[in-house]
Amino acid sequence: MSDTVTLILNALTLISILMLVGLGLAIIFGLMGVINMAHGEFVTFGAFTLSLLQTAGGNYWMALVLAPIVGATAGFVLERSIIQHLYTRPLATILATWGVSLIIQQSLQLILGAGPRQGTGPISGAVNFLGADYPAYRLMLIAFAAVIVAVVIAMFRYTRFGLDLRAVIQDRDMAEALGIDTRRVCTIAFASGAALASIAGVLIAPMTKVIALMGASYLAPSFFVVIVGGAGSIAGVAAGSAVVGGLETVLNYEVPATVSQAIVLITAVVLVRFRPRGLVPS
């Protein structure tokens, strides 16, 4: 029983992180048709914010506040300087954002060194949860991610901005004709997606090595999330995260990590064949 609980909690940890990273990616894709290859770097920014802040004497909670600001600023700059000019050229966006991603990775490595850094969580130790001893930090992570996702859903549903956003996703030209400033909506959505990824970076940092190249390892899984789940809706991201995160966690118990990644890839590819627009098409 306790094994099952641990397994489910492990899966939930991964699913939470994938959702936070994938949400930004999916909304940006659904909204603007833009595939942002530099999205993983926002995760890196978040993790480095925590690590650098702690080195400088700050604490975890400060990082959790500061990271989304850093991420949103970086997202804003990227959107305004490059992506906004490439809305009609999806392939060009891939190349440009990939270039940005390389530049950020390598600059971080040159400036801050290639060696792994650390971030520490605010709480340590294990608590007993339904008969299983589980790290308290991971439980906090799951709860925190759930709150954030709830806030995002609420914003999507009940705010004026959420309404504008859904309108632009559905029909950009019509939204513009109705007086919605689509450029502004896109910029804000992009910056918010980047902020979410940065928060994910802070959450991940205490559980992994903080290095300049870490974003790349979250980029591919979060793309699987978007491909499997479908772009442009929160339900799609949730479904995609559940499939990818759940599958990978369960497989990691049975087979080596490389094999489980390969299986996740194959599953994603096969699912695409039968549901080309994702499990939950928008």
Binding site: L95, W98, G99, V100, I103, Q106, L110
Partner: peptide, 8 residues
């Protein structure tokens, strides 16, 4: 870095 700048 050069490759990245080239793409952009």
């Amino acid at each position: 870095l050069v490759v990245g700048a080239f793409f952009v």
